[in-house]
Design a protein around this nucleic acid. Structure first.
Length: 508
RNA sequence: GGUCCUGUGGCCGAGUGGCUAGGCUCAGCUCUGCAAAAGCUGCUACUGCGGUUCGAAUCCGCACGGGACCUCCA
């Protein structure tokens, strides 16, 4: 087993990863709230944890990866306790059942995850399917004395909790600072303390999603579902809990409080937080309105105002997207994301994407070349060392940018060998194939585009014919014809690449 | 206002106190009927000012710039 170091938010340090059970890892990641379409910032988080999931498995762990779907109880104004359930609001506006909204966004979410080749988690629990567990946990917290009931609502008593436990252990903030940084908020009178948060909310008459509980009809608070579901599937203490770093001060802080308040011990050993995706240096978030959608990035087009859905397979597109010069393949997007470490902000721009795309294509081209090079008796490179470097990069808190730099070193070697400027033995070539398979495909999750099927075969045949005709023209020094073929194909979206051993072609 | 993070070459982006990350751009070269593509080579940067140190992009202080959180957010 590799010695893996992970940056733990709890300690703000890189720590050697030691799972509770030596062979099994329990990992929980906060998934989406299905009140609108998943945006590209969300995708970054899930991509980052996908890499970790893949790598943990690659180095030999059995991983139970739980990523929830929140489909209830998410208030628009959690602290004030006003506002209505987001999903319920969407449903009313669109005259749909709440579960219709959830179904639609869940479908779109999974499709986007699939396009980005993000593996499905082992368990994807719905909050609405775990109301009983959430009620039971709330009861336990009340029994422990850390929650109180007020007219059908149940609130967590943060100040009482803080007398015995460190409430700000994750965020590093002390309670007094948080209490003093008060802003004027409405609807606070039901709570005893400013930082108290709802475990259970009484449903107003117009509220659509409601369940019976010991405190009357209502719905669970935002934070309790993660505590209840992680405990159910991973146990009272598990190895890794992840999410976006914007969840640290409220959601994850309250999750810890709930679990400790319920069971008296810390729920998670390693907290991992991914940084935000920015657009022109500003965080992409729904509240700022600067989000763009995966389908827009993948097509280079803007979603039509009347599109019934933003799910890539169903979206109606309008004009060219002002932010992008072109469409970007989901694999390029994945690669682009991995060129930045998960804990750094990632700034989206057309220039940066294009730079990534070129590098990506070059790397993938070297993958094809790797299968064409011929072995020699000696090697002029130390391939084993590069493999070790690749593992070292991943073991150092999943450092994918450094991993990628080593892969580009491989690409350079492959090209040099292909040019007969350097040599590799057969075992070294096989080792390179293994490195590419393991790291590019297995761990980075990048799939090679393989053209197959009847139409691809037919196109191949046609192109071979065209290239032969062009070669004949060139042999006859009929450059007018050969250039015409080249230019017309270019217009049709096919690029001719003349090489030493004949011409190749590629779709633009 | 409070708490915290951050500032790297034309651009993006890694960097564990000493050993030129990497990608893109650009330049030169190879290849080529021309071009494109591809490949090779080159381009030694760390916001400013102090300090610690034999030595600092890396540690400390101050200043300035950027950002996050404190309110739903991945």
């Amino acid at each position: 087993m590799q010695a893996l170091y992970i940056h733990n938010t709890l300690t703000r340090k890189k720590e050697l990863f030691k799972p509770i059970n030596p062979e099994v890892v329990g990992m929980y990641v906060c998934g989406p709230t299905l009140y609108s379409d998943v945006h590209i910032g969300n995708c970054r988080t899930f991509t980052s944890f996908d890499i970790m999931y893949r790598y943990l498995q690659h180095i030999g762990y059995k991983v139970r990866y739980v990523r929830n779907i929140t489909d209830v109880g998410h208030l628009e104004d959690e602290v004030a306790g006003t506002g209505e359930d987001r999903i319920g609001k969407q449903a009313r506006l669109k005259k749909l059942e709440p579960m219709e909204i959830v179904q639609r966004y869940a479908f779109g979410f999974r499709e986007v995850m699939g396009l980005l080749n993000i593996l499905p988690p082992s368990i994807e629990p719905l909050a609405s399917g775990h109301i009983i567990e959430q009620i039971e946990m709330t009861q336990q917290i009340i029994a422990q004395g850390y929650a109180y009931v007020h007219e059908g609502n149940v609130y967590f008593d943060v100040e009482k909790f803080a007398q015995k436990h460190n409430y700000g252990i994750l965020s590093g903030r002390n309670l007094e600072d948080q209490l003093n940084n008060t802003r004027d908020l409405d609807g606070q009178e039901e709570k005893r303390g400013r930082l108290d948060f709802a475990l259970w909310k009484k449903a107003k008459p117009e509220h659509l999603m409601r369940w019976n509980s010991p405190w009357g009809e209502g719905f669970p608070g935002w934070h309790i579902e993660c505590s209840a579901m992680s405990q159910k599937y991973l146990g009272q203490t598990f190895d890794i809990h992840g999410g976006g770093m914007d969840l640290i001060p409220t959601h994850h802080t309250n999750e810890i409080a709930q679990s400790v308040g319920c069971c008296t011990h810390a729920p998670v050993n390693y907290w991992i937080h991914t940084n935000m995706l920015t657009l022109n240096g500003q965080k992409m978030s729904r509240s700022l309105g600067n989000v763009f959608l995966p389908v827009e990035l993948f097509t280079g087009m803007k979603l039509a105002a009347n599109s019934p859905s933003a799910t890539p397979s169903q979206a109606l597109l309008a004009e060219k997207h002002p932010l992008f010069d072109k469409a970007y393949n989901p694999m390029v997007v994945r690669f682009f994301m991995m060129q930045t470490h998960y804990a750094s902000t990632l700034d989206f721009s057309n220039d940066a994407l294009q730079a990534s795309e070129k590098g990506f294509n070059r790397l993938m081209e070297s993958y094809n070349t790797l299968y064409k090079i011929t072995p020699e008796k000696t090697s002029s490179f130390d391939i084993k060392k590069i493999q070790e470097d690749c593992y070292a990069a991943m073991n150092d808190d999943f450092n994918t940018p450094v991993l990628i730099s080593h892969l580009f070193e491989c690409a350079r070697i492959i090209n040099l060998v292909n040019d007969k400027k350097e040599t590799l033995t057969e075992p070294d070539i096989d080792l390179l194939k293994k490195i590419y398979q393991n790291f590019i495909e297995g761990i980075m999750g990048i799939t090679r585009e393989e053209q197959s099927g009847k139409s691809a075969e037919a196109l191949n045949g046609v192109m071979n014919l065209v290239l032969n005709l062009r070669k004949k023209a060139k042999d006859n020094k009929d450059y007018a014809t050969s250039d015409e073929i080249r230019n017309k194909l270019q217009d049709a979206g096919i690029q001719i690449k003349d090489g030493k051993e004949g011409a190749a072609w590629a779709m633009l």
